[in-house]
């Protein structure tokens, strides 16, 4: 029983990442009708926001500590981060410690900016082009972004630790009398993801803007005919989707150290998630994201991998193929989306 719940929990963090990326993909797809193969790269960019901030905060100046000497008797050079120099070791130290959560503040404007530039500079010109062209150009962009990051940050994964306070493991099963040791950061990530998903949904549900966007997703032409400047809203939607993907990436760093190809790894799976959830269905994307994340977690148990070796590597694809064959529109897909 404990093991069962533990597998569900273990699936939640990956599921959260899938859900967030798939949510953005679906938003872009539903509103703009564009298949964005560069969405994984946006996730990766988010993660590297955290890496960058961490590096910036750790920029240090050197001072000579007269009180200490090295083994040759020379005075020791001590590196002090500028932040600690400015705010004192206490506050400065905790700023560095909280680098990852703090990156959110940078990532939001940065990612929205990236999304804006992408949409205005590139995607815009592809609305009327065939889907194949959209796929190809965004695929090219994904390669470019990935290679640029590789150029600046190297090919190896970069550790981005969570704040000390959020390190370690908590037994969240205690109230139920279960033994469920779960890393705190994963818990944070899950709650963060739920928060963002809730935010996006309530934004779409309760604001006029959101209403127009939903109407646009249902029937783009008609909304265009109403004289609503839908293009501008769509640009914003792209920024929003980029922001969501970016934030998903920022917070994912402590779970899996970011590397330049993490975007591609997640992208393929997120596409599968979108398709399983049903193209153009936001709840479908979220549901399928969590579902497949949890499924993957179950498939990774020793029991599963000894029964069918490597099942954890292919389970998502298998499920996707079965779903598409039995329910061609995905779990919650609507009729007519990308069909004719």
């Amino acid at each position: 029983m404990d093991a069962f719940f533990l597998q569900i929990l273990n699936g939640l963090d990956k599921g959260s990442a899938y859900a967030l990326i798939a949510l953005g993909l679906t938003l872009i797809f539903g509103t703009l009708g564009v298949v964005n193969f560069a969405h994984g790269a946006l996730f990766m960019l988010g993660a590297f926001c955290a890496v960058t901030l961490q590096r910036l905060l750790s920029l240090s100046f050197e001072t000579i500590d007269e009180t200490k000497t090295d083994f040759l008797g020379n005075p020791l050079k001590v590196k002090t981060p500028y932040v600690e120099g400015w705010f004192g070791p206490e506050i400065g130290g905790s700023i560095i410690d909280w680098a990852v959560p703090l990156s959110i503040l940078i990532a939001i404007p940065f990612m929205i900016g990236v999304g804006y530039v992408m949409e205005r500079g590139l995607i815009k010109h592809f609305y009327k082009r065939p889907h194949a062209d959209q796929i190809l150009v965004t695929f090219g962009l994904a390669i470019v972004l990935q290679e640029v990051i590789k150029y600046f940050f190297g090919a190896n994964p970069i550790q981005t630790p969570p704040p000390d306070a959020l390190l370690g493991v908590v037994n969240i099963g205690a109230p139920l009398g279960l033994e469920l040791a779960y890393p705190i950061w994963r818990m944070v990530y899950f709650l963060f993801a739920v928060g963002i998903i809730g935010g996006v949904f309530s934004f779409l549900q309760f604001t006029t803007f959101g209403m127009v966007v939903r109407a646009g997703m249902a029937d783009r032409e008609t909304v265009g005919l109403l004289g609503i400047d839908i293009d501008r809203r769509f640009t914003f939607m792209f920024g929003l989707a980029a922001g969501v993907a970016g934030l998903a990436g920022v917070m994912y760093g402590p779970i899996n150290p970011p590397n330049y190809h993490m975007g591609m790894d997640f992208l393929v799976l997120s596409f599968v998630v979108v398709v399983v959830g049903g193209m153009g269905s936001l709840p479908g994307a979220v549901l399928a994201g969590f579902m497949l994340g949890i499924l993957e977690s179950f498939a990774s148990t020793t029991w599963a991998t000894t029964t069918i070796p490597g099942i954890n590597q292919i389970i998502i694809y298998l499920v996707a193929i079965i779903v598409l064959l039995t329910r061609p529109r995905g779990l919650m897909g609507r009729k007519g989306v990308m069909e004719d």
Partner: peptide, 25 residues
């Protein structure tokens, strides 16, 4: 059985699955 981007994504999924199969399974 599907066309358009569904087809692209399906083939992509199949290829990735084949890769996983060949690489480890």
């Amino acid at each position: 059985r599907r066309s358009g981007i569904y087809f692209s994504i399906l083939t992509l999924a199949f290829a990735q699955m084949s890769f996983a199969l060949a690489y480890s399974v």
